[in-house]
């Protein structure tokens, strides 16, 4: 494992912790898109089908358990927790996320490295993860006061994707036969979706102003 990959995993982990901190201690999910969280839960459930069949490393298994457990508990919190669900911006979070599922699944059936159940589900999870942030970005645009934790959460998610690209570049030059067009292109699309957010995030940071995205 290289430093980019580790840093990417750690920022991903940090993003989840920031979100759980906000939900668990402040009992608020204001500014957080349930649609995006549901898509992430589906992403991990379909990607980690190999968790009990293929052992890679203790690190790998533990991280998979963390991402599965955290994504489903976040969805549970927003839907079921008495206080947290009250802070959910239901009227603003209107992205039709179900419409992303079918196109991603069809694309995974058509474009994959191997036509097996596990491989198609894995590819589906890549395509879905690439677009899963869209409801969250739309909600951010509609939010007048983006609180710091929400801004940091999205920033850390974007940083995680950027670091994974550096990890792929590093692996490409250090490992033989390391070519994976499907995750690379979907990962690139995923990272580009954060570009606009990053721009305004750094602007607000530079000018010491509150983060706000233009509608």
């Amino acid at each position: 494992m290289n430093i980019f990959r580790l840093a990417g995993d750690m920022t991903h982990l940090a993003s989840v912790l920031v979100l759980l901190l906000k939900i668990h201690t402040i009992k608020s999910c204001a500014g957080i898109s349930l649609k995006t969280q549901e898509l992430f839960a589906i992403v991990f459930a379909s990607r980690y089908l190999d968790i009990f069949t293929d052992f890679i490393s203790l690190y790998n298994t533990l991280m998979k358990l963390i991402f599965l457990g955290s994504s489903f508990s976040i969805v549970w919190y927003i839907r079921r927790h008495k206080l947290v669900r009250r802070s959910y911006d239901k009227d603003q979070d209107t992205f039709r996320h179900y419409f992303l599922l079918l196109p991603c699944f069809i694309l995974a059936l058509l474009i994959n490295e191997k036509f097996t159940f596990k491989e198609v589900m894995w590819t589906f999870s890549l395509y879905l993860e690439a677009v899963a942030i869209l409801p969250q970005l739309v909600l951010l645009q509609r939010t007048k006061n983006i609180d710091n934790l929400t801004g940091q959460y999205v920033f850390l998610l974007g940083a995680y994707r950027g670091l994974y690209i550096l990890n792929w570049i590093y692996r490409y030059f250090t490992e033989p036969h390391y070519v994976h067009w499907i995750p690379w292109i979907s990962g690139l699309v995923q990272t580009l979706l954060y570009a606009d957010f990053f721009y305004y995030y750094f602007e607000s940071w530079k000018n010491n102003k509150k983060l706000q995205l233009p509608a």
Binding site: D50, I56, S57, F67, W122, N167, H177, Y178, V179, H180
Partner: peptide, 10 residues
């Protein structure tokens, strides 16, 4: 390395 060993990533 095998051509498809990306599964060690998360």
């Amino acid at each position: 390395a095998e051509p498809s060993d990306l599964k060690d990533e998360l």
